[in-house]
Amino acid sequence: MIRALLAGIFTAISTAILGNFVVASRQSIISDMLSHTALAGVGLGIFLHLSPTLFAFIVTFLTSFLLWYLTRSHKSAPEAISMMLLSGGLALALLFSHAAKDNPISLETYLFGSILTITQNELYFFIIVNLFIIGFITFFWRQLLTLVFDKDFFKTKNPHAAILEISFMLLIASIVGIGMKIIGGLLIGAMLVIPVLTAQTFSRNFFQNVVWSIIINIFGVILGIFSSFYFDIPTSSGIVLSLIFFFLCSRLWKRK
């Protein structure tokens, strides 16, 4: 359980930070899209009897590039393209897992996560990825802030804006890659988005919103893991429902 807590807390911190940028850029659906295409990678991994996590990373990275390329000309709506890739990813995941019936690893583990079965090596890997994400965002804070709040202004100031745009998508792809094991591909969006919404009740600026999101996310993960341990409910359900519970509390508190 210590491993689960550590992996959960680190992921809570990076998803909370990244989530604020994702919500501000109105790209929440992209995280959902990437997590569904990641499942195609998982399916492929299961089919080939190779690491599903590794293939999830590869497929989400490739999809990030594809999405950037397809939406670069502004002629197609990003959310429509995302929706197409999302269903395509899920269709492939289903196809691969159907073809790989002989593999004992099931797709379900990656749909809804299984944080309590995390191995020591996975834990180290997750911590490194999380630290990288946190470091990257801290270093490029100002640039990312400009990109997500005012893309046009960012582009007039930076001729090489596309590099940061792609990097930002790769960050989302990375968090989706590790989030699959922690909370599941279908639920990782919850850790990115819900704390950001809850935090808005208490914050007057972006930095405050990030700090509050981190606190809320950590509490959600701890409450989720403990409730799963003591009441025998799925951990992912515990985490997501805790986060929604905090959100409802914050709205009630605001109305007071």
Binding site: R142, F149, D150, D152, K157, Q200, N205, F206, F207
Partner: peptide, 23 residues
């Protein structure tokens, strides 16, 4: 450049100091 449409993304709070930081 001060663009025609300067509306910033409104979904997350941002302070005036943070807006200035962008420039």
């Amino acid at each position: 450049y001060v663009p025609q449409n300067y509306k910033l993304s409104q979904v997350v709070p941002i302070s005036v100091r943070e807006v200035l930081l962008m420039g």
